[in-house]
């Protein structure tokens, strides 16, 4: 029988923690970007579209390196914003969250946009003529009607977060108990002799987590469908 070491357990917990945090952190900006791209016409829309979707096409390692240059001690965000505030991000679990959020962001925005594009603009107009202000109409019409996209986007982000490797290893490193997530732990086991069995065991954990996420997604969408009818 295989025994997980404390650092294996912490890798599993950390993976879940990073994926959940990245999802929660990304939801508000992803909603805002999806809203702007669906309902607004503005200059620089194409530029925003390209920027948001870039992480989908760039190798994660490149994203990690860009983040490192931005947030590192000599990066302009790191040097001029983070250091004066006394914030250290690189090689902490927070860096893993940022890496995961950036890599998963386009998936989340796409999922939210898909459900937002099905909202009839006249519903928002109806809400406005009924006395709802702009914020009111967002929270009582747009959020409830794009809730499917919000859930689908969160699931995609969470699942992507569980598997994030390339960007994470560059900005957060592979520190056992601090920034070592499941994929990093598997990488370690595979590259060490006699580590195959433990790698397999962690793979199994990954499979279980992914299946659980998909079941939860399916369950939520079925419940929503039956409630609508």
């Amino acid at each position: 029988m295989l025994e997980f070491s404390p650092s294996d357990y912490s890798a599993i917990l950390l993976s879940v923690r990073v994926a959940v945090s990245a999802t929660l952190v990304s939801l508000p900006p992803a909603f805002a970007v999806a809203y702007a791209m669906t309902f607004k016409r503005f200059r620089g829309m194409l530029a925003l579209d390209v920027l948001v979707n870039l992480p989908l096409t760039l190798p994660p390692v490149v994203i990690g390196y860009i983040l490192l240059m931005l947030l590192g001690q000599n990066g302009w965000l790191g040097k001029w914003v983070l250091q004066p505030l006394g914030i250290q991000l690189i090689f902490t679990w927070k860096a893993a969250v940022i890496a995961t959020a950036v890599v998963g962001f386009p998936l989340m925005v796409r999922a939210i946009r898909t459900s937002m594009e099905m909202i009839d603009r006249n519903l928002v107009y109806a809400a406005r003529t009924l006395g709802a202000g702009w914020f009111d109409s967002i929270f009582t019409v747009i959020v409830p009607l794009s809730v499917r996209g919000l859930i689908a986007g969160s699931i995609l982000m969470f699942a992507r977060g569980l598997g994030e490797f390339g960007a994470t290893i560059i900005v957060a490193g592979n520190i056992p108990g601090v920034t070592r997530t499941i994929p990093l732990a598997i990488y370690d086991y595979v590259s060490s002799p006699k580590g195959d069995a433990m790698a397999m065991a962690l793979c199994l954990i990954s499979v279980i987590l992914s299946v659980a996420v998909l079941i939860v997604h399916e369950w939520i969408s079925r419940r929503m469908t039956s409630r609508r009818a």
Binding site: D120, N122, Y125, A126, T129, L130, G131, G133
Partner: peptide, 15 residues
């Protein structure tokens, strides 16, 4: 703003 005009609207499709 439309929400302050107190002008109601009925649309082609009920919305």
């Amino acid at each position: 703003a439309p929400e302050h005009r107190r002008i109601g609207m009925i649309f082609q499709h009920a919305q």
